[in-house]
Design a protein around this nucleic acid. Structure first.
Length: 113
DNA sequence: CGGGTGACAACGT
DNA sequence: AACGTTGCCACCC
């Protein structure tokens, strides 16, 4: 598989993200048939630029985390676009419906003491 | 070949 | 929850 083919597969996967939803870099990589190459997704998005007309704002880090530094121009632009599609966010992370119930208590157990 | 880098991910604390 | 570590992988020197 050539680099160009990998990039094309990634762009297809990104274009397939439905309006009002989002997917992580790792998830996009898997959908493109490239498991474990999350970093490649970021690389492709970066070099694709605006003229590619990709819904890049629907791609987030693991768990809905915005990959850009909090408060940066890019981060604000991404959150703004997501908000226009009805995707709510808090801080630098899009609001996830639900997290694993078990993780909550274990987490609390660890960082309180 | 070898080291640095990054729009990442998973895990531990 | 916020960080630090590690593992990863494609690229570029």
């Amino acid at each position: 598989m050539t680099a160009g083919e990998r990039a094309a597969a990634i762009r297809r996967a990104v274009r397939a993200i439905k309006r009002g939803s989002f997917a992580s870099y790792g998830e996009i990589a898997r959908r493109a048939g490239l498991p474990g190459r999350a970093r490649l997704v970021g690389q492709v998005l970066r070099e694709s630029g605006d003229e590619a007309r990709l819904p890049w704002h629907r791609v987030t880090g693991a768990g809905g985390r915005i990959a850009f530094p909090a408060g940066s121009k890019n981060a604000r632009e991404q959150l703004s676009r997501l908000a226009r599609e009805g995707v709510a966010a808090r801080g630098n992370r899009v609001q996830v419906k639900r997290t694993a119930a078990g993780a909550r208590s274990l987490d609390a157990l660890l960082w309180k003491q």
